[in-house]
Design a protein around this nucleic acid. Structure first.
Length: 409
RNA sequence: GAGGGUGUAGCUCAGCUGGCAGAGCACGAGGUUGUGGCCCUCGGGGUCGCGGGUUCAAGUCCCGUCACCCUCCCCA
């Protein structure tokens, strides 16, 4: 019988990695909570057209990377490739706009994209993200970015923040057609992929790392010159607020994002420490999306961070609660040992009963392997051993032992 | 979707121009019949990723396939 393997690009996260995962998510929860975001738990499966209409019909995500299938009811469904579309759908469907004011949501969980796996890129990967609905002011953009920075700071991750403004759809449309004209004139100097990108993703050409392309696009039209007055002002405000919040940033006039729905502010936190997939968190504003998906006109913005990528950058985990290993010295004391562990746990101590029967020596080896800081020997009496010093102390009853343990842990 | 690399013990890997499948670590038992780590002794472990081919003989050569890693593309 050959063993079954996991699906390509999918992974089991366990051991230290699971701890990192949990640590990252817990940290994010804490910080998002401080900023008064509410959690929303979103479905993994959505109607395909949700993503077609939000992420964009022409994007790689929709064209090549979605897990799409027909369910038993004949519905065309997709495993979500990202979280924003679902959040927006939920915002509209649950009429959260009717609550008045504005709405701040965060989510966490698996996303699915059928891509070739590589470092920091999986077919099932996990994101933490947050969205703000109903705020027009760039104050929100600044606070959102500050919040992402808070998260990275608490995880002790250094990343560079790049920002840009894409303006409105209209601004961008004019710009893109100008850019296409420019690129078509320079076509012969561009690399093969960029020649194709002129039609598929002209903004991306400006980001190309090939020297020839860099040279050819040096004098390319710059998006910011095409922005409306209000977009420019918004962008200036954002920069002012970011400085006020002590957020360092680099302006990258060529920064674009791969999803169609962005307007005005876009940002990206990147690092060069984890290989080719350097973007660790990214987001921006999407003022048209809610309306585009059938809701009332609502300005909105958000971001998402890749948990696996953050995991590559986290090396220190917070200290865990110390473990007490309860060892019956022989079988006659098994039931007493179970009771002792039970009592320790009832007092919020982390206890492991040695569940293997055998020589005391083998149980001690196990206690050591399990990482016990203390061992409690259970016989006619109770004896506490400090595994670091080897010192032992006798106790008349569990209560006294617990008191001593609480002091020492 | 394109290119390159790698699959041998639980882990890290060695195995030359084809000729008995190995090491270190880890694991188990014992040395101490009520005490871990260090040390010593002994021991268990392999369809050499999978399928086919060449050969007297394949871990080694050839073809296919799957998985992983890396790069491009794209993105978190």
């Amino acid at each position: 019988m050959s063993a079954i393997q996991k699906i390509r690009g999918f992974q089991d996260i366990y051991g230290k990695d699971a701890k990192k995962y949990r640590y990252i998510v817990d940290t994010a929860r804490k910080i998002f909570n401080r900023y008064n975001f509410e959690e929303i738990i979103l479905p993994f499966l959505e109607d395909v057209s949700l993503f077609k209409r939000s992420v964009g019909e022409a994007t790689d995500i929709v064209q090549k990377e979605m897990y799409v299938f027909t369910d038993k009811g004949g519905r065309e469904v997709a495993l979500r490739p990202e979280g924003t579309a679902s959040a927006v759908r939920a915002y509209i469907e649950n009429k959260m706009y009717a609550e008045g004011g504005y709405k701040k949501l965060f989510y966490e969980g698996a996303m699915f994209r059928y891509e070739r796996p590589q470092a920091g890129r999986y077919r099932q990967f996990h994101q933490i993200g947050a969205e703000i609905f109903g705020v027009d002011s760039p104050m929100a953009d600044a606070e959102l970015i500050r919040m992402v920075k808070d998260l990275l700071d608490s995880l002790n991750i250094q990343a560079t923040l790049e920002i840009n403004s894409l303006g409105s759809f209209e601004d961008r449309k004019t710009y893109i057609s100008e850019l296409k004209n420019f690129l078509n004139e320079k076509k012969e100097f561009l690399c093969e992929t960029c020649q194709k990108r002129i039609e598929t993703n002209p903004l991306r050409v400006l980001d190309c790392k090939v020297e020839g392309c860099k040279e050819a696009t040096k004098d390319a039209p710059v998006l910011i010159d095409y922005l409306s007055q209000s977009s420019k002002e918004r962008y200036e405000k954002l920069k002012e607020y970011l400085r006020q919040l002590d957020v360092d940033f680099i302006e990258n006039p060529r920064l674009v994002r791969g999803l169609d729905y962005y307007t005005d502010t876009v940002f990206e936190f990147t690092t060069d420490k984890i290989g080719a997939q350097g973007t660790v968190a990214a987001g921006g504003r999407y003022d048209n999306l809610v309306e585009q998906l059938g809701g009332p006109k609502t300005p909105a913005l958000g971001f998402a961070a890749g948990i696996e990528r953050l995991m590559l950058l986290v090396d220190e985990l917070p200290e865990e609660q110390k473990l007490v290993v309860v060892v019956p010295i022989n079988q006659d004391f098994n039931s007493e040992a179970l009771k002792v562990s039970h009592k320790l746990r009832a007092e919020n101590l982390k206890a492991e009963t040695v569940l293997k029967e055998g020589s005391l020596k083998s149980k001690m080896k196990l206690a050591n392997k399990l990482g016990g800081s203390f061992v409690v020997f259970v016989s006619e009496k109770l004896e506490l051993k400090d595994m670091a010093t080897g010192e032992q102390e006798l106790f008349e009853n569990v209560e006294d032992l617990i008191d001593t343990l609480k002091d020492r842990l």
